[in-house]
Amino acid sequence: MKDLKNPVETEKQEWRKRQNQQRLKTGLTIFSPVFLLLIWEILSRSGLIDARFFPPPTAIVSTFIELLTSGQLFHHINISLFRIFAGFLLGVIPGIILGLCMGLYAPIRHFLSPLIMALMPIPTLALLPIILIIFGIGEVSKVVTIAGSVFFPVVINTVAGVISIDSIYLDVAKNYGASRRDFFLKIALPGSLPVMLEGIQMGQAIALLTIVAAEMMGARSGIGYLIWTSYSAFLLKEMFVGLILISFFGYIFSLLLRWLQRKLIPWR
């Protein structure tokens, strides 16, 4: 049998233990990227890995500052962000509208879903040649490429969101005499929102993948272009700056979307 101790004291110690464990977890999360950068720096400086291919992080940072102060980085960032936002909106808005219609009206769903299922597996990048033929080599073709890749996850998730709405909510709407319009706006839209936003989250990740690849293939500006031309000219520090930018924007976008999610679905 255990020693008889003060029960509050026992629980207090348990609580302290849990607090310490929590602190350890936070520490580990912060520590891992710092640790990686440190190892990289040491290996690169000491010549254990080839500094021409893997320049030390501190050198990358100073290149980043140079590019930033010379102003050419802003140009690339601006154009990429414009393409992402324009393409994102052009993909998300029709995706939501079509997804709601497909979810609500079975004939539309049955008519369109084979087309969507057939087109979805084709990477939009593989369609880039066709997009270039139709929309030319200007900005429109990049925006359309992004839109195309964002569109599919949004449509599919919106349809799934509408279908997953508990049938009792449909009964409530019907019993209380909801009009078609009210049904669309008060039941289908909010009911499908959580699943729809997951699709938008996915779309955002795909948009970032697509923009880099599209800019590598057919552009004269943008972060993807910066990465590709720097690599071609063996300016690897500049290339790493491009890679870090992509990682940074990916993180910012997902934070933004998570914030939006909290604002749009406060009932969750």
Binding site: I168, D171, V172, K186, I265
Partner: peptide
């Protein structure tokens, strides 16, 4: 109708739920 449990809409507040029929 007063439905079985789960019959109120999770995305509306208490007041909005109570007003649902009137708003419709």
């Amino acid at each position: 109708m007063v439905f079985q449990e789960r019959g109120i809409l999770p995305w509306l507040t208490v007041a909005e739920n109570a007003a649902f029929g009137l708003n419709m």
